[in-house]
Design a protein around this nucleic acid. Structure first.
Length: 217
DNA sequence: CTCCCGATAT
DNA sequence: ATATCAGGAG
């Protein structure tokens, strides 16, 4: 009975999202896997719009891993400063590019276990790159939006991104993983917002625990 | 669990 | 003025 409720909730969310977000695209701007990797690393704890404003300049100077390596720490840090954590991110970027050149001929690896070894790359970043640059569904990117939506709606009762991702992967068909993540991020940004969620216009309020608890119809 | 950091909403 | 936003490493 409880399990049936959960399955029903997943089904309703998947259907509603399929209708409202049939083809969700990343807010991040990129033209190739390398650019996406860089952009997603920069997007940690930072809005996509701010990343875009930085990468627009950055990608004029940086076409591949070699360009990052060649660049001085100061120049790289200055270019990415508005995204926050710029020293860490500059270090991650350089570390990534060294590994890319050393082990992958300057290309981006296409497996989760390899991507996750790159400095500054966790499962969220890896899943994002795999799904959106290569169309490979090897995980579900659980960022703060996916986490919040999953918890509020009642798709997972766990707290960590890892456990939430496992719950989601258990209930969502693998070929939908990337789509679901993109759609949910969109939904979290536009409707199920952190500060002031717009439950009135939410397509999944009928099955949403958060909406019920906050006095929903 | 703490540290890394800038920008915007309140 | 200050709370909040938004991932990964050590």
């Amino acid at each position: 009975m409880k399990n049936a409720d959960l399955e029903n909730r997943y089904g309703a969310v998947l259907n509603a999202f399929r209708r409202v977000y049939p083809d969700p695209k990343l807010a991040l701007r990129f033209e190739n896997p390398f650019q996406l990797l860089v952009a997603v690393i920069l997007s940690a704890q930072c809005t996509d719009e701010r990343v875009n404003s930085v990468t627009e300049e950055l990608f004029k100077k940086v076409k591949g891993p070699e360009d990052i390596i060649r660049m001085s720490d100061e120049e790289l840090e200055n270019l990415i400063r508005p995204t926050g954590y710029y020293r860490q991110k500059a270090k991650s970027l350089k570390g990534c590019c060294e590994v890319l050149l050393k082990n992958y001929g300057g290309e981006i690896p296409t497996r989760m276990d390899e991507l996750v070894k790159l400095p500054g790359v966790g499962r969220k970043t890896a899943a994002m790159v795999l799904g959106n640059a290569f169309g490979i569904n090897e995980g579900i990117a659980v960022d703060t939006h996916v986490r919040r939506v999953a918890q509020r709606v009642g798709l997972s009762d766990h707290d960590t991104p890892e456990k939430i991702e496992q719950d989601l992967m258990k209930h969502i068909p693998r070929d939908l993983w990337t789509w679901f993540s993109n759609a949910t991020i969109l939904h979290g940004r536009n409707v199920c917002k952190a500060r002031k969620p717009n439950c009135g216009e939410c397509p999944v309020k009928e099955v949403c625990r958060f909406f019920m608890k906050s006095g929903g119809v």
